[in-house]
Simulated scan of single mutants.
Amino acid sequence: MEDESGIFARESAYLERYVQLGIASGRVISVSFPAAPEDDAEPDHPLLERVVAYLEGERDDFEDVTVALTVPTAHRTVLEATRAIPYGEQVSVERLARTAGLDADSDDDRNVVRDALASNPAPLLIPDHRVRDGPSAAPPEVEQRLRSLEGL
């Protein structure tokens, strides 16, 4: 995947929509869930194979997948902490704030967490669906299916 770039998409029966990956220089720059893929999206990519297997019930933490985060530093810290939430577990916004080194008692810091989750460029790979009282960058129906898949 080192030098690959492009848009890759595959339909998911479980999600009832497509999973679309944007990849630049072998790094994931976006994950989205459109009703129809981009016209130039390719259907085959090893990471898409893993995502489909995950959506069919195979556990995968996608820990080895490189996600290019071009976000503010505070958001990066939150999203990196979100990536560390294990499969099948969930945390609160407050706990995630503490894990990210923020003040869980501060409204401003909790808002930083919520803003980071809402603007997550790679939902599923950065599993914002595991934050029970935070927003997800995935559409609500996708978030609920991901939560259900992991028993949350």
Rank of each mutant, 00 (worst) to 15 (best):
A100N: 04
S106E: 05
A122E: 07
V91M: 05
A74I: 09
V19F: 10
E94L: 03
L69K: 06
L21N: 02
I29P: 00
S119D: 12
Q20E: 15
I85F: 08
A116G: 05
H75K: 06
Q90F: 13
T99Y: 03
P140L: 11
A118D: 10
S92Y: 13
P34C: 10
R76V: 12
G151N: 09
D60Q: 04
D40W: 15
D60P: 01
S148H: 12
P72T: 12
E11V: 04
S12H: 09
P37I: 05
D40Y: 15
R10A: 13
V51C: 01
V78C: 03
R132F: 12
A118F: 14
A41T: 08
Y54H: 11
P140C: 02
E2S: 11
D109Q: 06
S25Y: 15
E63N: 04
G22E: 15
S148V: 08
A35Y: 14
L47G: 01
A118P: 00
V31G: 02
V19R: 03
V28Q: 03
A104L: 03
L149G: 00
T82E: 05
S12I: 13
T82A: 11
R50P: 01
V65Q: 02
V65Y: 05
V131P: 00
Y87M: 04
G101H: 11
R147K: 14
G22P: 04
D109L: 07
L102K: 02
V113P: 02
P139K: 03
P86A: 11
V131F: 03
R130K: 09
I7P: 02
G88N: 04
R50Q: 06
T70I: 12
A100F: 12
V131G: 00
V91E: 05
V71H: 03
E16G: 10
E4Q: 13
R130V: 05
R10K: 14
D128V: 08
T77H: 06
R10E: 14
A24K: 13
G22K: 05
T66W: 15
T99A: 13
V71L: 14
D107N: 04
G134R: 02
P43T: 07
G26M: 14
E143K: 14
A138M: 10
I7G: 00
A122H: 08
L146C: 01
E141G: 01
L79H: 06
D60A: 08
A100C: 05
T73L: 15
H129M: 07
A116P: 08
R130P: 01
P46N: 03
P121N: 09
D133E: 03
R132A: 08
E38I: 05
A100L: 04
Y87S: 00
E11F: 15
M1R: 08
L47D: 05
E16D: 15
Q90D: 08
R17C: 14
N111K: 13
A41C: 14
G26P: 08
F8G: 00
L48R: 04
A35I: 08
T73F: 15
L47Y: 06
Y18C: 07
E143W: 12
A53W: 14
T73G: 06
A9N: 09
E89I: 06
T82C: 10
T82M: 07
D128E: 02
Q144G: 02
R114Y: 12
P135D: 00
E89D: 13
D40M: 10
Q144H: 09
N111C: 04
